[in-house]
Amino acid sequence: MSDRPWPKRLSFKGSDRVLDIAFEDGAQFAIPFELLRVESPSAEVQGHAPDQKKLVAGKSGVRVTAADPVGRYAVRLSFDDGHDSGIYSWDYLHELGENADAIMQAYRERLKAAGLPH
Rank of each mutant, 00 (worst) to 15 (best):
V45R: 09
A57C: 00
V70M: 06
Q46C: 06
D51Q: 14
L96W: 10
R108T: 02
A27H: 13
A22F: 05
R9I: 01
R76D: 00
L96N: 09
D20P: 06
K59Y: 01
L96D: 09
I21V: 14
A30K: 14
V70A: 09
A43K: 15
S2A: 10
S40G: 10
A49F: 07
D101P: 02
I21M: 00
P50D: 03
G115F: 09
R9K: 15
E109D: 14
L93V: 03
G97L: 10
V70I: 13
R76Q: 14
K112F: 00
L77H: 05
P7M: 02
L35I: 05
E98C: 14
A49M: 07
N99I: 02
K13H: 14
T65R: 10
F79M: 05
F79Q: 12
Q52Y: 07
F79P: 04
D51L: 11
Q46D: 03
A106T: 13
I31H: 01
D25Y: 03
D101R: 14
E44P: 00
S2E: 06
R72C: 02
G58E: 09
G14F: 00
D68M: 12
D3W: 12
P5R: 09
Y107D: 02
R76H: 01
L19W: 04
G97M: 13
V38L: 08
R37Y: 00
D3T: 12
H48Y: 15
S78Q: 11
D81K: 02
G115H: 04
H94I: 07
Q46I: 04
L19T: 01
V75M: 02
S11H: 15
R4L: 12
